[in-house]
Design a binder for these strands. Structure first.
Lengths: 159, 159
DNA sequence: TGAATATATTTGACGCGTCAAATAATTGAC
DNA sequence: GTCAATTATTTGACGCGTCAAATATATTCA
């Protein structure tokens, strides 16, 4: 086992670089990467409680109250007390939120097309394997599976 | 080119998981991962200006004023105006800072030993290649090279 | 029913990253 | 030498992640 310094430096840099690229696109839509994640998830799942939403986001603590607050204030999300359990709140997309999702999809298509050929299937595969091993035993993998499942189903807002 | 969704989810999760693991160790020393980076860099380079320090850190803007402020307040760093150029400040380790570095080295040794065999040279290599390709054209790679060079030289504080 | 327990969300505090504007000191052109 | 550009740092504003404590509602069980 060698010194993982180079790996962790690359990991941090790649993470930041990816955030930067997504931000660069999304700020044309006046949203942040975090907003984009929430919008895309809700578009697939339909209304969720705060805790359920958190299960789809790659963040440690599952209660993105303040992120949702900001997005409600900006007009992207509705929040109402969940019927039958007044502890929970039910979060759903507004029409503006749905419109943003469509713009995000456009943007993602462009990002993918522009991506250099280094993200080819065969070069990506060993990377995924190593990262999944790195994450073994953590709670992250469950979240990722949940997210990938969403890509198999049709959009909630299409129904 | 396939949808990079899985890659970016894994990237974010691996980044966060690594931060979490480092934090878990470093909080036994009452420092944060960011503190650890600064201490380790300065231990190798010797005194740096704020801008120079920033060139070694994996952050976008190269002026970690407030991070250094906090660390000065905590007693890990000295800051003095640089001789000959009163715009610059010169940042150096205090004795406490040097002591922390030694503890960090211990901690890193443990982290490396505990790391699962998935970080073997042969599985790591394609990951590094892909990440370097992903980062091509960005300013991150220069920073990483600077950091890796430090590992070739002896510690400043040993002199 | 009523008290203990569990669950969902909110809130406060803090560190960090990013951007842009402000300040301070130096350098360079003339 | 003076004034305009350049360079180094600071500061304010904001978003986000994390932790822990507080609040509110539901559930359980005696």
């Amino acid at each position: 086992m060698q010194d993982p310094e180079e790996f962790t430096l690359l990991l941090k840099a790649a993470y930041r670089e990816n955030e930067r690229r997504v931000l660069e696109q999304l700020q044309l839509l006046d949203i942040t990467p975090a907003h984009g994640e929430v919008l895309r998830v809700l578009n697939k799942t339909g209304p969720l409680s705060l805790g359920e939403l958190g299960e789809y986001l790659i963040v440690d603590t599952g209660h993105p109250s303040r992120l949702v607050d900001r997005m409600v204030k900006l007009g992207y999300l509705n929040r109402q007390p969940a019927p039958g359990d007044r502890r929970r709140i039910e979060i759903s997309l507004t029409d503006l939120g749905i419109a943003k999702v469509e713009q995000i999809q456009q943007m993602r298509k462009k990002l993918i097309e522009n991506a250099a050929p280094f993200l080819e299937q065969n070069s990506l595969e060993p990377v995924k394997v190593l990262m999944r091993n790195f994450l073994a035993g953590s709670h992250w993998l469950k979240k990722i599976e949940r997210r990938l499942e969403l890509n198999q189903s049709s959009n909630f807002s299409d129904k």
